[in-house]
């Protein structure tokens, strides 16, 4: 029993679980920020009355949404870093990390775009007609009537994109980021096969702690802020 516990202790002394999760959190934060920016631009393009912008936005979403994230991440490293010799940092590890962020952002921007657009779709046409009927010009009706309702309708889908992004940050493993949780877990188990279940258990609990509060929070927020119709 004493051997068992001290062995387990050594495992987690060697492999720092918190550091691994911190890498996933950083990936999620930066990729989320860029995905939100790019996704918002795409959503504006897709709901604009300008046909060429709409076409580009739709094409982006349909192409990226149907591509496996693993291919995007592999492409970042094999094609952009090695074949085209692009770099986002002189240090290769940092460069991998940043390309992983770019890949995650490109992929999730398409889902952010659709989440925002579905928020706009929750606003009934009557709201816009009412705004025009009382004489509001375009900008005022968008600013005061449509967009506030659209954002509130987009919270739940945006929350599920955030959760997907958190979990997908593990796919950075395909972009040679070796310090994130799934890669660290793999190495930890490979060198300590006796503690297979224990090591997985610790990482699993970590993910539950990370994901479930975000889910509960966005569900709560979306219900609290939902426009009751």
């Amino acid at each position: 029993m004493g051997d068992y516990l001290s062995g387990l202790w050594t495992v987690f002394e060697t492999y720092n679980v918190l550091d691994a999760f911190w890498v996933n959190i950083q990936l999620t934060f930066w990729a989320g920020l860029f995905a939100l920016a790019l996704g918002t631009v795409l959503a504006i393009m897709r709901i604009s009355p300008i046909a060429s912008l709409r076409f580009v936005g739709t094409a982006y979403v349909n192409i990226i949404r149907n591509t496996p994230l693993t291919i995007i991440m592999t492409f970042m490293i094999l094609a952009l870093v090695f074949q085209l010799a692009l770099e986002l940092s002189s240090d290769l590890t940092t460069s991998f990390f940043r390309f992983a962020i770019v890949g995650l952002a490109i992929y999730h921007a398409s889902f952010v775009c659709e989440a925002i657009r579905s928020g706009v779709n929750t606003v009934p046409l009557g709201q816009a007609e009412a705004a025009r009927a009382i004489g509001l010009p375009f900008l005022d009706s968008a600013r005061l009537v449509i967009l506030p309702q659209a954002f509130r309708g987009a919270i739940a889908p945006l929350g599920s994109v955030l959760i997907a992004l958190m979990k997908n940050s593990t796919v950075a493993a395909a972009a040679s980021v070796t310090t994130e949780t799934s890669s660290v877990m793999k190495v930890a188990i490979e060198f300590n096969p006796n503690y297979l279940l224990e090591i997985f258990g610790v990482f699993a609990i970590g993910w539950l702690i990370l994901v479930i509060p975000v889910g509960l929070l966005t569900t709560w927020l979306s219900e609290r802020l939902a426009v009751k119709r």
């Binding site: 579905s118 599920s160 994901v211 569900t219 979306s222």
Partner: peptide, 25 residues
């Protein structure tokens, strides 16, 4: 989407008339 339903049960429909799909409402 990547995750169709949030933990806690809020269904999130990502859909739009442009896709040719019916509106969630």
């Amino acid at each position: 989407t990547e995750a169709a339903v949030l933990p806690g049960g809020a269904a999130t429909g990502v859909d739009g008339p442009d896709d040719g799909g019916p509106r969630p409402t």
